[in-house]
Amino acid sequence: MTETLQERSPRVGDGEARTGRRRRSAAARTHPGLWLFPLPALVLYVVFFAGPTIQAFQYSITDWDGFSAAYQNVGATNFENIATNDDLFLGAATNNLKFLLVVVIAQTVLSLLLAVLLQRNSRSSTTLRALFFLPAILSSVSVAFVWKFMYDPNFGLINQVLGGIGLDGLKSSFLGNASTAIYWVALTQVWAHAGQLMVIFVAGLQQIPEELYESAALDGASQWQRFRFVTWPLIAPATAIVVAYTTIQSFKAFDLILGLGGNPPKGSLDILSTRIYTTFTNSRFGYAAAESIVFMVIIALVSFLQRRAVRLTQHGV
């Protein structure tokens, strides 16, 4: 509260800072040298980040191939094609949606389960937490290569194990099966990151006062009821973070797809980020820029809707 008040006075001063006297008093508060601190970051950001982002919009209404000096302004044609006439983009969007759903649901449930089981700071719990976190630090290309072997239809670990225990019927070609390949990649993503998100849940769980569980137990609440009516509502903020982060992650799974699906990835494994990259490497700069704008809008939209949904469920509980 005091901080808001302190911040208010210079704000009022700024509005009236036209007279010299006012300006001097504001300057005494805000040393002009302070403006130099964010300057390097701002210059780099404007020139190499914000500028190119705006340029992406300019490219998106052209048919530029990246090399020719001349290109045409084609208006909304690129966007129309993306929306109505582009099976590759549609396929990538569908795959991305499947990937997102599996990863968000499986990863949230699994990381919460692990967190509940490992929330106490005993020696064995902290050791297991450190172990489960480990895959998250590996590069996605590394993770992809580990799982490429797991999934190898002929020599892969999973099929060998299934054969070894007499479950040959469950053997699968995994990534070779176009209709299910993307789900196997989703499980790889969960393997790599569930432990990372578990940590966020553990932090949330450890903030829940022990007394709440005790009084719930006194009231005769079962273990499930204690989870449902104490844990679940109180870790809602952590759940919101995990779901939001996992969603963004699912749109960024570029490296994992290239590692498991090849470069360019086969159609059954193409997602939006790899689709844009492939369009770009095929020298269709204008069209790829249009795709990238659609991509940005989709991410913003999904994040927004999700935030609304999370807020609704939190009030619902």
Partner: peptide, 29 residues
Amino acid sequence: RIPGWRGWVLYGFLVLGMAVPAQSNMIPQ
């Protein structure tokens, strides 16, 4: 440390970049 809205506006401008996926400005870059 820059007080008032100026500090927040600059901060918001820089942090807005987190909402831009890498694929969306890589081509002009």
